[in-house]
Each structure stands twice: as C-alpha cells, then as structure tokens.
Design a protein around this nucleic acid. Sequence first.
RNA 1: GGAGAGGUGUCUGAGUGGUCGAAAGAGCACGCCUGGAAAGUGUGUAUACAUCACAAGUGUAUCGAGGGUUCGAAUCCCUCCCUCUCCGCCA
Length: 423
Amino acid sequence: MLQVSYIRDNREQVLERLAVKNFKQTDLVDEVIKLDDNRRQTQNRLDNVSAEANAAAKQVGELMRSGKKEEAEVIKAKSGSWKEEIKQLGDELSQIEAELQQKIVLLPNLPHSSVPKGITPEENEVILENGEKPNLPEGALPHWELAAKYNLIDFELGVKITGAGFPVYKGKGAKLQRALIAFFLDEAEKAGYDERMLPLLVNEASGFGTGQLPDKEGQMYYVGVDNLYLIPTAEVPITNLYRDVILKADELPVMNCGYTPCFRREAGSYGAHVRGLNRLHQFDKVEIVQVVNPETSYDVLEQMSLHVQSLLQKLGLPYRVLRLCGGDMGFTSALTYDMETYSAAQGRWLEVSSVSNFETFQSNRLKLRFRNAEGKTQLPHTLNGSALALPRIVATLLENNQTAEGIKIPEALVPYTKFEWIN
RNA sequence: GGAGAGGUGUCUGAGUGGUCGAAAGAGCACGCCUGGAAAGUGUGUAUACAUCACAAGUGUAUCGAGGGUUCGAAUCCCUCCCUCUCCGCCA
C-alpha cells in the first residue's frame, strides 16, 4: 500500500510511475488525495469538538467535587449537543477512512526507475544468461515421461486422491524432493538466513499484510469454516511474523528463510504448457525474506539475486535472469528479477525464482517499522525471493541430465540424495 | 467441544467511574559516582493522526477488538477474539 502522504507530495511522479506499470485507473490518485483532504478536515473538526467536550467533562468533575452541583448541571445540560456532533463526525470520519482505504489498496506499488516499460512477458529484459544448454541424446524425453519411466512421480495417483496438480512423489523422486529442500535450506543458512518453520494456513490479516488480499483472493485456497487461507508462498507467514512490530535499528537486516509447501488455485490454466511439473496446485519451495534499511535495499536485492544464481550454478543448470517490465510485474513489487532455467527437452525457459524488492509497500500494510538513527519510527523495505521453487528445478534437472545410463544427480546434491544416479 | 479464570506500556504488576496515557518495580538509554566495573544515584523511556518546518508545543484517539450506558470509562453492560486451568477428544 502506498503512503497517502507520498501520493500527496508526489502526485505527478506517482502518475508517471503508474504509467510504467501500465496501470489504467489513474483517477484513483486524485480520488485518494481528495478523500485525504476530507479526512483531515473532518478529523480536525472532530478533534476540536472532542477537546471541548473533554474540558467540560473535567469541569463537571471539579464542580461536583467542590459541591457546586447546580453549576455542574448547567454544563451537563449543554453536553447533549456535542455528544451528537461527536458521534456524527466520528461516523463521517470512519466512513471517509474506509473509502480511502478501499481506494488506496487498489493502487499497485510504484516501479523502480530501472523497470522497463512494457506490457507482456516478451518485453521483459534479459540481463544475464549463464551456463551451457545441454545437447541431449537422441530420443530425449520430457520430464513427465522420465518421471514415469523411472517411477519418480505419479500424477494419476494424485488425481485420484485429490485432483489434477497434486502429484505423488515416489521412491527416488520423493528423496530428490527432500534432498533439494535440505540443500536449499542449508545454502540459505550459509548465506546468513535464519530458518523458520511456519503455519501453512494464515488468517485474513496476514493475507492482507503481504498484499495477496484483496488483490489475489481467487488465487488462494480458502478454508471457510475457520476463515483461513492456505499459503500460496512462505512469503506470507514469514513476512507477517513482523506485522505490527517496531524493530530496533540493530535488528536490521532481518534475514529469514523457510521451507513450505505452497498452494495455488491457478484457476483456468490447462494445456501443454502446464503439463507435468510445469504448473501445480501444490508444490514445495524454500523462500528467503529480508527486512532492511531502505538505504540498502537495492544492494540487498542484488545480493539475493546472486544467492539464487549460486544455487542454479551449483546444480549445474543453465539459467537466465530477467528484469520484469512494468506490465508483467506483481502488484506489490517495485523491482523484480525472475530466474529461469532452460528445460532442454521442452525447449523452453521455465521460471524457477522471482526476487523482488517491495520497498515500503508491504511494511506500510503490515505496520512494520524500525527505529532509525534519529530514534523515529520509519518503514523499512521488505524483499523476498524463491530459493528455490522445486517442481521446475526437478523438471529441468531430469531433462537436462538424462543420459543413456539414466539421470545423473548433480554433484552438489549427492550428499543429500545419497545416490548418484536415477536408473 | 464443556466448565472456570483472565487479557493494562519492553516485561512484572497496581488501578472498579473524574485529578489515568495510566502507580510501583524491572529492563533499556543517557549522565553522575569509579582506575574500570558492580552497587548507588539523577534524568528520560508508547503509537498513530491533526496543527506544524516530518522541530518544540498543543489537540485527539488508543489499557485484546467492536458496540453501549454516562457530563465523564482501563474501570459498568453487551458481542466477538485470544490466553490460561480443569474435563473430554487426540498425533
């Protein structure tokens, strides 16, 4: 959520930035400013009347104590009028505040100055490509066929017990999942992240705090009887750990990581591109999150990007890094890098990580603050990234490492799988 | 799920209608004391909004959340949420 004060002071710039994100409802900006004017005025009037009423009440108290009952009664008699006014202004104020809130949450975060203008994913900027695309042997298979051939994943069983998009991992397939999770967590810990193991269901306030609600309501599984949402990413519970918190300056940067399954409804996506592990309703992911001083956040973003890249390098996967264009960026992000690995048998790039700086967009919603050098509360910047999401890593790993003898496990992973080959 | 108790500032904890944004202690910060430290001692120590120079000052709101009674509520009433204890169920 953008800060109203920022919108007021930087109206032109806000409009300009929103254009980069290809945001159309620009009327909202002026509506927000107007509502805020209204809010201030109303609050001012309410404060003044309340002050009068408070003073009078105090006077009544004093008069009563000194036994001047009649004088007290005179003031009491007058009280009815402000009482009504206070009630009326209070109602008015909360209505204005609700309306303001309703509008301001519709405004997406402003993109960083380096974000390219653009609408479609094709307009994302490739800023780096690394690693060799493998030359696959004759008759190389896509991962879903490899998964069947080596009995690693059973998609049909998942359909039986739950539905499409909920695979069952078996044998070495299951061990590979476990190995990747442990590997990613260990690497995150080495990079300085402190692990958390988190609830998989969150309440509405948490969904709002990180920006999934109300924007992406339909993307989350919802448990109505208890009014809880299944997390679409560990970002939600981890970042919300710091909701309503004022951090001390020396507590920054906060660095947390966590493994969780992630649940996404992905309504209406079917077809060849979502075959196999390409898009699932439930998948595993290790997430890294930082809460940092605004001055350092863009350096931290680079550092997080490098961490993700180091994982891909250690796994020996060819990858590229994209700087997302305004139109393809998430609602809450100011700058996002996507990491994609090359899936050789499918002949396409698959997104395996997304690293973003949210600046103060989330901290403002979360009421997450820190005490700065002057001892004042200030909104920190929040960042997060997948490090990494498993399914597409598994997909490229299987496809790119297939040989006539079987699938070769990357060396870095062998200590975790305790086997070198899937055959 | 049933019965009971309770939710106050960083923490412990007082406060049952007015002088309470809230005693006291601890913690923390800064200072004095000390060769240094401990002890001792002094001062300070919530957040948000408004006014305003995002200063000082002032006003308003906030004692789990929301509503009500009252001239006036942390204190009384109602609803909800949460925590604890006992019972039930259970990995």
